[in-house]
Amino acid sequence: MELLVKQRIKEVLKGDQSAYEEIVEIYKDKVFQLCFRMLGNRHEAEDMAQEAFVRAYVNIHTFNTNLKFSTWLYRIATNLCIDRIRKKKPDYYLDAEVAGTDGLNMYSQIASDIESPEDQVESLELHDIIQREITKLPEKYRTVIVLKYIEELSLKEIGKVLDMPIGTIKTRIHRGREALRKQLSNI
């Protein structure tokens, strides 16, 4: 896999844009998942994940081929998400809750012929709760928890993604786990 990706990167470096398509195909789900778990919102996640791929393409000449491409890509995506969380502007998305209403979102403001929100919520309820709790974590704990338990990276890889010593990663994971334990203990 890494070999194929390295080959494609060489082609991209020669200027062959279409070789990048395969790279996007390989990593799109992982990067989208990372962004979604970090941000808790599909629209933002899609924006950020696409932005991550575009940035990786534009800066591909700075990629050090001794590294794993996925590590580098995750670094770009996490940095983008963290920036996004930090300067969280009140962007309006259709599935954001309308203030002062109980669970009403923007979709309810427009005519809809798709399945009612209740149908979707029923099956995903537990996932939604968990996602909400993940999103409540402070961003520095959220990042390591998502990388470790959703992207299933090793501590060493997380250290490389975030460019931090393993000791720091461990501490953050411990704190993140503690926070999650408290938040999820009543489920």
């Binding site: 398509e21 996007v24 195909e25 799109k28 789900d29 990067v31 989208f32 998942q33 979604f36 778990r37 599909r42 899609e46 994940a49 696409q50 537990l126 996932h127 968990i130 996602q131 993940i134 928890i145 338990y149 959703i150 786990r177 999650l180 334990r181 938040q183 999820l184 203990s185 489920i187």
Partner: peptide
């Protein structure tokens, strides 16, 4: 352990179809 299991249980989501 339960907290970890919960986080891991969140179903793996896929990127939107027109993503690439």
């Amino acid at each position: 352990k339960k907290a970890i299991a919960f986080v891991q249980s969140t179903s793996h989501i896929e990127a939107p179809s027109n993503f690439t």
